[in-house]
Nucleic acid binder design. Structure first.
Lengths: 188, 188
DNA sequence: TTAGTGACTGACTAAACAGTCACTAAAATA
DNA sequence: TATTTTAGTGACTGTTTAGTCAGTCACTAA
């Protein structure tokens, strides 16, 4: 791991544990075993570091999701992937997921360009639109369906964090909650 | 509005706009037109102010929800109330709701005693438990049902913020999304 | 009328902070 | 080999910060 990565990794853990306000750059550098000035060599300001961390994590998560669904052909399979892949990723990357949640619900999110966010969700919106057009999904506003699926993911992630299960049971929870979700949006 | 309230109100708006890290106590006092020292007369530290604000808002929201559902007798009505009342409250108190969201997803939440949180949600958990026992709700883990309802509320709140509708249409969205939610958890 | 109280003030301070800068050591390029 | 670029250092600084404190003032009640 090079020093830039090491800084990002250390910052991640400190931000999640103490919050942005209570994590000085000096503490990040010290804990990473890297000189103070090096942090500012890689990131011009503390805010830049925070934003870079978000973009970095977000793109890794997106890559994982796209990799997971790449062989799915049915709408059902793709939507299930978009629901469950983030959950599996979150279980393996708890701190990262928590950071993204923290960041997304803070005023920092406004500092990320709208199209940077849009580009991550657009493919999924297209899929939902197709689902509605083909009559597989209920004829509801696409943004509502999107919000519901995403909300479902966050809810169940929260549930799985608060009640840690063995792996096999986790899979069962994810499967069964998708079944509930699918029942809600699917056009029977 | 007395000075304590004025400070809380000013802090609320600044925290939501700039975040905890970028809102110094001096800025809060100045913007409220109150002396610096007065802030520390009412709140011993900045952290205390932040926590007091959370507790204050949370209890006002809970009071509103309980008031809304107090005459409901059916499980259907109560659960609908627990879903929709926060949404109506959030629409009238956007900044407050955003603050609670921001706070809840930050490490500050850990500083709030677990039983302080529990006391707000316990009555609702009891209702859900009754619903499952009576066979009105699907036989699923009560905490899952709770997580799903709460997640639904957050999702639709987000949707309503991003797509502002006229009042009549808002009501329609809330009603129809509750219908979807009810279909998912109700034991047909 | 005096003594006390609680709300409130704003100048002040010590510590902490983000960010700078002059400097190296090593690697890439010429 | 000589020169430039890149990665990295850590002591330093100017500013900002949370929090303090000595004191004012309106009011109360004995």
């Amino acid at each position: 791991m090079d020093k830039r990565e090491l800084l990002l990794d250390t910052a991640l853990r400190l931000f999640v544990e103490f919050g942005f306000h209570a994590t000085p750059t000096s503490k990040i550098a010290k804990q990473a075993g890297i000189a103070n000035g090096t942090l500012f060599y890689f990131f011009s300001t503390k805010d830049e570091l925070i934003k870079a961390l978000y973009v970095d994590i977000k793109s890794r998560m997106t890559a994982y999701i796209l990799e997971t669904i790449k062989d799915e052909t049915s709408l059902y399979g793709i939507i299930k992937g978009y629901y469950s892949a983030p959950l599996y990723w979150a279980l393996e990357h708890k701190t990262e997921f928590q950071f993204v949640t923290q960041f997304s619900n803070s005023p920092y999110l406004n500092q990320i360009a709208a199209d940077e966010i849009q580009k991550h969700i657009q493919p999924f919106l297209d899929i939902i639109t197709r689902g509605v057009q083909e009559g597989v999904l209920k004829p509801i506003d696409v943004d509502i369906i999107f919000a519901l699926i995403r909300g479902h993911t966050f809810s169940i992630n929260q549930y799985l964090i608060e009640k840690p299960f063995p792996k096999a049971e986790q899979d069962k929870v994810i499967d069964e909650t998708f079944y509930l979700l699918w029942g809600m949006i699917n056009n029977r």
